[in-house]
Structure formats: structure tokens, C-alpha cells
């Protein structure tokens, strides 16, 4: 974990330093008696850089058993899930509620969870139907207009 902690510390410190620059240059920090809008984030960013430095220093050195970010084969399902989710969030914006909901159940169950088409299709159609009835018909939620609702 040490390697990843050091890497996290570097990323967090970089965010902190960028925030300090933005607070001083763009927003303005004012004085203790008259703080400007950048005052509070400026001090937060200082603390963030300081804590990141401690995290970095306390994790320096070699590990006896360095842990990988993902265990063997553990990256596969979360990455697949992220890809399926990304597709869903794009679809809901352009195609509408019904198609995107059918898609998420089909894609999730078939691609991520390796379920059969038959089972996935039955679940997808049933839950989309219930969802449409509850959210659109009963609760009257208007979804973004797409090619299909």
C-alpha cells in the first residue's frame, strides 16, 4: 500500500498547490481581519499540502510485500461496470428513460455478471415496466426528451 499512499500524497499535494495558486492569483485571500473569498480555501489547501507531505514521508521506504492496486483479475469487473455505466449515462441524456433502463439491465446482467440473455431480458423488461409506471405515470417525473421516452 505504501507505493500507492506516496502516489496519492503527490496527487493531493499537487491539487493543494494548484488551489493555493488559484486562491492567491485569481480569487484573493484578503487579510485576517478582512478575509476575502480565497482566504478559507487558501488555508485549507495549505493544510492539505502539509498533510500530504506527512502521508508521503511516513510511507517512504520499501515494502516487504507490496500490494498491487487490484488483486489478480480484480480489475476486470469494476472496469467493465464503469464502461457499462458510462454508456448508460450517455444514453439517458440522448435516448430517454425506457431504452436506457432496458440497456442498463441487459448490459449489466449479460456483460458484467454473465447472466443468460433470457433471464436478463425478462428482468430488464419487467423492471423497466415497473419503473416507468412508478416514476413516469404515478410520480409524473419528466425525463430528458430523447428519441424515445
Amino acid at each position: 500500500m505504501r507505493k500507492w499512499d506516496c502516489l496519492s500524497a503527490i496527487v493531493l499535494a499537487a491539487i493543494g498547490l494548484a488551489a493555493i495558486y488559484e486562491a492567491v492569483q485569481e480569487i484573493g485571500i484578503g487579510t485576517f481581519a478582512q478575509p476575502d473569498p480565497g482566504f478559507y480555501p487558501f488555508w485549507l489547501a495549505i493544510v492539505l499540502v502539509f498533510l500530504s507531505a506527512i502521508l508521503f514521508v511516513t510511507n517512504l521506504g520499501t515494502e516487504e510485500q507490496p500490494l498491487p492496486f487490484w488483486g489478480k483479475g480484480a480489475w476486470y469487473k469494476p472496469c467493465l461496470a464503469i464502461a457499462v455505466l458510462l454508456g448508460y449515462f450517455i444514453l439517458i441524456a440522448y435516448i430517454g428513460f425506457v431504452v436506457s433502463t432496458v440497456y442498463i439491465f441487459l448490459a449489466w446482467m449479460m456483460i458484467v455478471e454473465k447472466e443468460s440473455f433470457r433471464k436478463s431480458a425478462i428482468v430488464a423488461i419487467t423492471i423497466t415496466g415497473i419503473g416507468y409506471l412508478v416514476f413516469v405515470v404515478l410520480m409524473g417525473i419528466s425525463f430528458p426528451e430523447g428519441l424515445l421516452i
Binding site: 461496470a81 455505466l85 448508460y88 449515462f89 439517458i92 441524456a93 433502463t101 442498463i104 439491465f105 449489466w108 446482467m109 458484467v112 455478471e113 447472466e115 428482468v123 423492471i127 419503473g131 416514476f135 417525473i141 419528466s142 425525463f143 430528458p144
Partner: peptide, 22 residues
């Protein structure tokens, strides 16, 4: 495998309805 996409759909509807912003 069924619960996870239900959570995704309900969350998306929830977040969308708060401001009607995709």
C-alpha cells in the same frame, strides 16, 4: 446482479429530479 442496476437507475432518477439537469 439485479440489485446493482436497480440502485443505478434509482440514483440517476433521484439526482436528475432534484434539478432536472442531465
Amino acid at each position: 446482479s439485479i440489485l446493482a442496476p436497480i440502485i443505478v437507475v434509482v440514483s440517476s432518477i433521484g439526482v436528475y429530479t432534484s434539478k432536472n439537469n442531465v
